[in-house]
Amino acid sequence: MAVTDQGSQTQARRAVMALCAAATGQELATALAGLAAPGAEDIRAPEIGLVMATGRIGGDGRPFNLGEVSVTRAAVRLADGRTGFAYHLGRDRARARRAAILDALWQGEADRPGVEEALAPVARRAAADAAAQARRTAATRVDFLTLARGED
């Protein structure tokens, strides 16, 4: 039971971190502004680095190195000791730090619903973007017909 709880809690945290990764810096600033977040200190100053993106041969085989992606990471500690982390594509330090603070806030049971509510507009915006993209793509769906050859 305890293990399952641990597992589902990790899943929920991953979902919140994924939502932060999909958010713009402004969206994260707006989410944080509504939460009256306590002060946070850097465990590690936001830092830009690389992650080697790997693919798989044939899409599902042995891995290979595709090339690197630039990544910004941040790690913060709130006054009450909660810690939070963020790893994002790109080079926006302020955005990664905001996401780390949201991750730290989410670690407290009491703050969890507030954080999730503050990020709900991001989820709605991302879902609307994805739906619009899917509709534009769907309009280009093609049905090819094979023609009989005249000489046969």
Binding site: V51, G55, R56, N65, V71, A130
Partner: peptide, 26 residues
Amino acid sequence: LPRFGASVPLETGRMTLSRRISATFK
């Protein structure tokens, strides 16, 4: 830049498609 590590291998079978064509099966 420092390298933080390597990614989990990309799941291209689950990508959000903007284009997909085949010359072998219609």
